[in-house]
Design a protein around this nucleic acid. Structure first.
Lengths: 217, 217
DNA sequence: TCCTATTTTTAGTCTTATCTAAATTTAATT
DNA sequence: AATTAAATTTAGATAAGACTAAAAATAGGA
């Protein structure tokens, strides 16, 4: 149906639309895709001809319904494979991204459907990101960033905003994993660092950390 | 490491070398790959520069040690994924080939290793073909074709030579599956057709069928 | 051996997805 | 409003992997 590159562009546009709640500029897309702006222009024209995006010169792009569906399908596959790798193949959550980047392009409806069944219809990937269902619907959850909590508030860790290896390994090292309860014992006004309690252990974390950890109260 | 196309060529050369016990001609390869002979020449030159094959103009190609290892690795992945699809994802043995053709190119040593472990180190794929181990060793088995059996001989069905959907579905329809015992009740000299007994049921099969079913006595 | 048919290779073209460099448009600032 | 800076697009080039058509090499038969 769509080429590997096309799928990657659609996915990138989807993520950027979410992130900025707006149309996506050529430069933003070129940064996300790690290509030159001129390459983006070429591809965007192609996607536009295929009616996958709405594009007006110098005005950025937006996904069409068709483009959004294609993007969501790729994201669904990516996240299902991540679950598979962690749950069944003993991968750590910081190792799955690149492999899922490959697996997400495998074309077979039945494969996706059966993988979903095999994994018992997971609703979130190992990083806490929602897995859209076969119709493309995301479950919405009212999560907030740990950095938004005040002293005395408590919540459950439900996801990560940054899913780089460095961050995930930091969390592993400090025994912070999804599902755990976090209590804000203290918050330093000067640098926004926090003293938190997890499993009865106290830990001081910087704002960089707390601004990348999703919490549900 | 290697491109998708390169891997497919290496795999094809491997299979043809096996089949004909000889170097592989450009035409044979172009037929196997479903491309034109001129395309084969181009690719073969490239593989030769990369030391993956030995190639002399007009003399056909042979895999080098390096090329053979690469080919075997792809075949290993292909067959492991086929097992996964059948054993875990409810695929029938006639549905797995094209998907495995995609999955075999996923690059991750750990993935292959863990998949192998997850599947409990299967020695054969759903069609009875051997799965090479991580070092590239194939288990050899002294199987023979059903067509080679004489009246009165009995054996266990261990593999298929042709794994086209048509053939596999024929076998399904007639309740012939790997592991079943087959007894040759009669063999017709004129057309080489056979009367066989499986699970106490008698069935007449043509030579086309019996020449594509591997048996172990 | 010579000639012809077949096989293989070469030469040149195409498509996809990328790039660089230059041109153009938009946005920002005075 | 004019000018400059930034963003975007155009034009032309490249690499991979395929193609067609034509040339060259090999093999088989008289």
């Amino acid at each position: 149906m769509f080429s590997l590159s096309e799928e990657n562009y659609l996915k990138a546009i989807f993520h950027l639309e979410r992130k900025y709640q707006a149309g996506v500029s050529t430069n933003a897309l070129s940064e996300e895709m790690d290509t030159k702006a001129s390459s983006v222009t070429d591809m965007v024209k192609k996607l536009s001809e295929k009616k996958l995006v709405k594009y007006k010169k110098y005005q950025g792009v937006k996904l069409s319904e068709k483009g959004r569906n294609a993007a969501v399908e790729v994201i669904r596959k990516h996240r299902l494979w991540e679950v598979f790798l962690v749950e069944k193949l003993n991968f750590n959550w910081d190792e799955v991204h690149e492999i899922a980047e490959q697996l997400e392009h495998i074309k077979s409806e039945k494969l996706t459907r059966e993988l979903d069944r095999f994994l018992e219809h997971p609703s979130r990937d190992p990083h806490g990101d929602p897995i859209p269902d076969a119709e493309g619907n995301f479950s919405v959850s009212n999560k907030l960033l740990l950095s938004e909590l005040e002293k005395g508030q408590e919540g459950i860790c439900v996801g990560v905003k940054d899913s780089s290896s460095d961050f995930l390994r930091y969390l592993d090292k400090n025994k912070i994993s999804l599902g755990k309860s976090i209590l804000v014992k203290d918050k330093e006004p000067f640098d926004e660092s926090m003293l938190v309690e997890i499993d009865g252990e106290k830990l001081r974390i910087s704002n960089t950390i707390s601004a990348n950890l999703y919490i549900k109260i």
